[in-house]
Design a protein around this nucleic acid. Structure first.
Lengths: 117, 117
DNA sequence: GGCCCCTATCGGCCTTCGACGATGGACGAC
DNA sequence: GTCGTCCATCGTCGAAGGCCGATAGGGGCC
């Protein structure tokens, strides 16, 4: 059981979040478009550190499949991976989910504004 | 050019929004996982009524393709269609996008809480 | 060096997606 | 009834997604 904390799990020093164009919204949505990936993201609700094996243990899928899901989340910028010797720490970029939620919210709200005005 | 308003475009009388399980989040995300569908949803920012032809005109895609995108959005509960003679009015279910955004927001926030506590 | 652990990637298989043109059905206009 | 309009559905095709077992490579440990 690993008890130590993952190194450098903040969002400092990461590239700026990508602005939410239609393409970008679709890209993040696509990464979230699978129940297994939602559950993986939900695993980050627990405060413990997250290495690949922890996440594999939390799924009923093969290690290679989980690794693929993690790659998809990483490519979308939702997760960030940090190598630490033989291990890989995975960190959730809350700001990306936050921005995505805000972009969806705006799509929902814009109509209300035009209806009100 | 059609100027009249679509009939019954509110959300009254529709079935209750589906609770946001992992499967449901993934389902809505999947429906949003294409730039063309994001642009279609964004078209609902304009206050004018939305029949299929209006939406087709706003895209560079074939009518059959747009119809398919509309079906996907409808199946996910994001749009509701109302037949009015030969026309079909499409209405955005803001509450679904709202609930989806809130579910994503919660996934992002939960971690912050456990980090703080 | 030799071994083992952790994880990413490859290859293969099947399913699903996304695009289009074509078809067909519902309905209004005449 | 006949035409034209609007729109959903079908058939087809190539591309992409999702799953797995097998493989490979990076890095500790002895």
């Amino acid at each position: 059981m690993i008890e130590q904390c993952p190194p450098a799990c903040g969002e400092d020093g990461l590239p700026e979040p990508i602005p939410f164009s239609a393409e970008r919204i679709a890209e993040v949505a696509k990464a979230l478009a699978h129940p297994a990936r939602i559950r993986i993201v939900e695993q980050f609700a627990e405060a413990k550190p997250h290495m690949t094996q922890d996440i594999v243990d939390g799924c009923t899928l093969a290690q290679s499949t989980v690794s693929e899901h993690l790659r998809i989340l990483r490519d979308a910028g939702i997760l960030v991976a940090t190598r630490d010797g033989p291990r890989t720490w995975h960190c959730l970029r809350r700001s990306v989910l936050h921005g995505f939620a805000a972009a969806v919210e705006e799509m929902a709200r814009r109509r209300a504004l035009t209806e009100a005005g």
